[in-house]
Amino acid sequence: MRRIYESNALRRDDEPFSPTDPDDRRWTKALAGEHRTINWDAFSHAFMPGWLRERAITVDIETSRDRYEVGEPVGFCVTMRNRFPISVKLQTRSPVLWTWAVDGLVDAAKIDRSNPTERRSVFSFGRGERKRFERTWSQTIRHSRREWVPVDPGEYTLSAAINVPNAAERGLAAETTISIE
């Protein structure tokens, strides 16, 4: 059986790099990555200094409102963006790539599970990539494995950070304040 790409039906011109030109192997080599001048993923990871990578990433946190009633779930959105036109990778302290916190309590819990293992990991951002994560805080603080306690009315700071040491100082964290009435 004669296949469509073995016929002349797809042969449109004799330009170099034509994907249908069986004699020109440069196109297929290019597709296979042989002719790519730079693998930007590997390049940025290997050569871009840490401080520059950190400059590339922005972190933002926002809630739909500033004030909530007692017991009302607080929905918030964490946005991270790579401002650079090349991919960027950040090494994190554990496989937990980022964390959120209420008044500094990660996952609104007094038991910190943000670094369950010593195994480091890598948080990758494609060029210009924007990542959005949605979470809801139930207005409770987890005191132990099995116990949650509702919070009192007042002001609370919601924060999000990429899981690297001193994230706030390195510009890889953000926070916002809400009021519970």
Partner: peptide
């Protein structure tokens, strides 16, 4: 990724009380 506080089944449970949102039953 984000389980409800207390008993994970409480949002669907017809017998849930307030305590079910605060304590995870063993």
């Amino acid at each position: 990724i984000q389980l409800p506080p207390g008993c994970s089944f409480h949002p669907r449970c017809p017998y849930a009380e307030e305590v079910c949102t605060q304590i995870e039953p063993p």
